[in-house]
Design a binder for these strands. Structure first.
Lengths: 186, 186
DNA sequence: CCAAATGTGTTGCTTAAGCGACAAAATCGA
DNA sequence: TCGATTTTGTCGCTTAAGCAACACATTTGG
């Protein structure tokens, strides 16, 4: 991201303080019990400052989780790749890793928010890869494809969580040929 | 210290950033090679901000070392005690610990600064303890006594560094009776 | 049930920190 | 040695963060 490029260093610092404090707190107690005051006290910043950076705690939840997911997904690295079998493997693995990492902290009741975050990030990546693969194709149809792929991958991760045992690799392996066949055909 | 009481939290934060960065840097390179820029970059603050907190790097050296020494001396704890044998032991040990801890980082050429810092801190502690022991005594003479004791303890630590082997306890043990005898006599 | 306590989001004003530019000093390298 | 960097310390101006107070929900526990 060129997010923090040309951002005021104070803002960068404060934002990080808030994010980190939130992550720390969410290891101790679950989301619904965390107040803005808790966060600002942990971060040792003023409560008013919190609202300069985030709409409210839900906004923070969203952005904090996005950031964590972003690290797992390492979007930049993925968009350098091709839309091949390897990439599917690793995207799926990144998602399951992420789900694992936040399943410790208790965000019960916010599954839908989390799901949307995951899908949003996946969608961006898929769209970039699709555009690279089919530069001349219609953007809207690529977008729609990306949306469907992101929902698909996410759905697979839900299914994976339900079936305890399998490793992410072996689990997703079954579906990949089908997906790719569809992709190749287009 | 009531230092950071009623201080602006931003200033507290920034001050700590600078101090920590300086400590970090002084583990990597020696004092004379550390520039203000190095510190402010490490601390990710603006160079101008440095000068809001410190006169110059020498001022920082002084205050940073004072702080480190303060932790070793734990002034508050010592001033709760009596001016007895135990206290002399432990003050001497604190000083030698401090000398050890900064001997890794290379502050060559600043021994005199460091020495003064140590003596200043010792002097404050001795003065408090002396005042507690002799509440009715003349303040000036207590001050002078504190000065002499602080120089004495520091001198002893220099001597101790020269003679490699002995433990601080056994080393100082020889002198304590004499010091105490003088104190008791007064 | 309702009062007291706690949490939310916003505001106007104050202040610490960021920025760029500057002259002057120190350091370096050829 | 001398010119070129680099470092130092300072300046005026801009902006992010602190603060206290506010009205308005929400808990909470007696």
């Amino acid at each position: 991201m060129m997010d923090q490029a040309k951002m005021d260093p104070r803002a960068v610092r404060t934002r990080k303080l808030i994010m980190d404090s939130f992550i720390t707190l969410s290891e101790r107690k679950e989301f619904k019990d965390i107040t803005v005051k808790d966060i600002t006290m942990e971060a040792m910043i003023n409560r008013a400052t919190f609202y300069r950076h985030f709409e409210d705690i839900y906004d923070l939840l969203e952005k904090a989780l996005s950031e964590v997911l972003l690290v797992n997904l390492d979007s930049a690295a993925f968009t350098e790749r091709e839309l091949d079998e390897q990439t599917f493997f690793q995207l799926f693995e990144a998602v399951t890793n992420f789900q694992q990492s936040i399943s410790h902290r208790c965000h019960s009741g916010y599954e839908e928010t989390i799901a949307r975050i995951i899908r949003d990030q996946l969608e961006v990546i898929f769209f970039k890869l699709l555009t690279k693969k089919n530069p001349q194709a219609n953007a809207d149809s690529l977008h729609l494809t990306a949306v469907m792929l992101s929902w698909g991958i996410y759905g697979a991760s839900v299914e994976w969580k339900r079936n305890g045992g399998l490793s992410p690799e072996t689990f997703i392996k079954g579906a990949i040929p089908f997906i790719r066949f569809g992709l190749e055909a287009e």
